[in-house]
Design a binder for these strands. Structure first.
Lengths: 130, 130
DNA sequence: ACACCTCTTCTACTGCGGTAGTAGTATCCT
DNA sequence: AGGATACTACTACCGCAGTAGAAGAGGTGT
């Protein structure tokens, strides 16, 4: 679903909601400010409103204040965005995508080791499924 | 550079230019149509014009017609977009990104094997660099 | 010569991300 | 009570992706 394609600020907001569970507008604003993103209170509120209209977040009212929570799972969003980019960039070729990840970032030997483990797990799963 | 962040249609156009080397507006339009994306001639022309103003493509004139070519390398664009997403989604954690790729797509055993090779190559490079 | 086809150019419009001001309303402190 | 505070609601604006029509200019065929 294209519901779970999030732009930069939207993703940042979601991160706040995912890590805090629930958050007021002020909470979100504060966390974004801590990350070096200073926005007006109303900017955050407007964005949350827009995201709610699209079903990406939801809120409950406590007194006058709105407490927001994410309506999308982090896994779901990550998966959808990553696979979407793989499709757009490499026609879905996962290997090429990984190849560019390894080239583009500095990957530590530790991370390489973790990746090897990951792949071995995958291979084991495939065997078990079959 | 944010120069090399391309949206969906822009990427599709770049793919045409990358695979054809050079292409007229009609060429691009045809290739997009073959991929199930039927657009008006002028839509493609407008987009190419906008992309040229941003330095993403360039053209030379042959008679009345413009022949476009990409001004950005495919490697450069891929790397930049992939690492950008990794940053936005996983704070740059490549391992998590790969993990979600493996989960989200159907990865064939052949691809897993290729990935293992890729990682082994990387490890060898790291050893040689050090 | 005239109609046709092909190309570019210009202009325009929709939708959305992002940003924020202003206004209205409730709450709280003194 | 009255001002400060906190919060929502409404409106507005910019820039850009995406989409395309209309106009103009040049070549082609009959």
């Amino acid at each position: 679903m294209s519901q779970s394609q999030l732009a930069t600020l939207q993703l940042a907001i979601m991160h706040v909601l995912w890590t805090r569970g629930e958050a007021t507008v002020g909470d979100v604003r504060d966390d974004l400010a801590s990350d070096g993103r200073e926005l007006a209170y109303t900017t955050v509120a407007t964005m949350l409103g827009k995201m709610e209209r699209k079903g990406q977040v939801a809120h409950r009212a406590v007194g006058k204040a709105f407490i927001y929570r994410s309506a999308l799972g982090q896994e779901q969003v990550s998966r959808s965005m990553v696979t979407d980019l793989a499709r757009r960039l490499f026609a879905g070729d996962v290997t090429m995508m990984v190849s560019h990840l390894l080239d583009g970032c500095d990957v530590s030997p530790q991370e390489l080791a973790r990746l090897k483990l990951l792949i071995q797990e995958r291979e084991r799963e495939d065997r078990d499924d079959a």
